[in-house]
Write a protein that binds this DNA or RNA. Structure first.
Lengths: 243, 243
DNA sequence: ACAGTAATTGTAAATTATACAAAAAGCTTT
DNA sequence: AAAGCTTTTTGTATAATTTACAATTACTGT
């Protein structure tokens, strides 16, 4: 039988039949955060089968033998939300030996931030249900999903400063207050309104429109749009918010 | 035969025997950067077997069935350098379907920064040789290792600002100029000496000693040590250099 | 018209960054 | 021993940015 000779070791102590190495699987777990009106949520499914039956869990699936990892992540997100073209990016791989009761399964976590209102209401024609949970009230989770969620939240805090993922959770035309609220909610801290506004306006990728809010019982706010091109240019030069 | 029913799909189109999923393997590739006197290097091995025989490659190995990912990374680093207790952290997982000619193998990249002089000279009792290469002169690499290296270099630039990995490439007692050179080399840009010094001194985790350099043909520099406790405290509060 | 509310603009003080220049402390050369 | 060379170390004047507020504005509802 052909054996796998570890390339880095000098003796034969650890010779293991190569087949033993090709008995693993990997899954992708999607950490799908939702933001709506100052609340951060997380999309969870309730498992319909063992192991961890009835537990809440991050939506995930095994990766098909001929499927790229990134493709698998997009597929799962799409199956679950019907959303397409959502940027979804790798966070980290979790690979403890005993993390999965059924065998050696490592999982690659992916992260996305979406607007919950964009989701097609998902009739659960299969056993497990899908539900948004507030980040302030997370049930016990299956596997090591709590750890994955914690790590991903930290990653979200980093990404929101570097990428334009906040764009997806705001309407096409938005106020600077709405913009500020996204950052306050996700980063978990408040900013001085006047100073925050001056800081972001000077970057020039938020473009002031001629329109204003209507039907608000106070001074109406001017509306802004996002100039994605300008942002990409700045990102290419290493731009990042320093909140 | 038992089949794996993808949890997220509503029909049976994709039912695949579950065995098909457990035919993958994963490897760990170590991106070991070395810094010495204003030069950044990378540790490569020359492969002694197919595929990619004779190509230079990042040192890596398949992960044993009962081995944690982090453990595998430390093992490989230790086999190669005899170094222990080096912090080595995950960068990213690379999982294109066709990245490995022998089957479905995804690889998890890990990163470390070490002082080349610390390495026990490694008699190559096995076919492939191990060698430091300047980052300015990288040969063609096996698999997708060039991409892995590029991503890891970017990650190194981020980590050097947030973690104390620079500590390992400096002697116990070092000058502020040496300290500055590490950052200049890795980030690839120069800083004003006076201003750089003032900025880092005010953080208080570099402690001035009563000693100075000797036998230098110019004003001798005062020596500093690193106060790791103070740094950890600051890191816990979100500290990061803003060079 | 007036009160209530949040948006927007303004500003003074404090802090930090930047670009240099000057002084200091060794060795080396004359 | 003095003068020169080199790099460290400290200083400084200016510009730029941050911060904490205050003042003003523009709507709705009474």
């Amino acid at each position: 039988m052909k054996t796998y000779q570890p390339r880095l070791l000098q003796d034969d102590l650890y010779s293991i039949p190569i087949d033993e190495f090709f008995k693993s699987a990997f899954s992708v777990d999607c950490v799908i955060f939702g933001y709506h009106e100052c609340e951060l949520k997380i999309l969870l499914i309730q498992r319909g089968t063992e192991p961890y039956e009835n537990y809440w869990a991050l939506p995930g699936d095994l990766v098909y033998p001929n499927e790229d990892l990134d493709t698998a992540a997009s597929r799962i997100l799409n199956d679950l939300t019907t959303l397409t073209n959502i940027p979804i990016k790798q966070v980290k791989t979790f690979g403890k030996v005993d993390r999965h009761p059924l065998g050696r399964v490592i999982t690659i976590a992916y992260l996305a931030l979406v607007e919950p209102a964009d989701l097609a209401p998902h009739a659960s024609s299969w056993a497990s249900q899908t539900q948004w949970h507030s980040m302030n009230d997370i049930p016990q989770l299956a596997f090591d999903h709590r750890e994955i969620l914690d790590v991903s939240l930290e990653e979200l805090k980093t990404r929101i400063l570097q990428e334009d993922i906040w764009h997806r959770v705001l309407p096409e035309k938005f106020t600077l207050t709405q913009f500020q609220e996204v950052f306050e909610t996700i980063l978990g801290k408040a900013f001085d309104k006047g100073n925050f506004r001056k800081k972001v306006v000077k970057y020039k990728f938020l473009r002031k429109l001629a329109e204003a809010q209507t039907n608000v019982s106070h001074r109406p706010s001017l509306l802004y749009t996002f100039d994605a091109n300008r942002f990409q240019e700045m990102k290419a030069n290493g731009f990042s918010f320093d909140f």
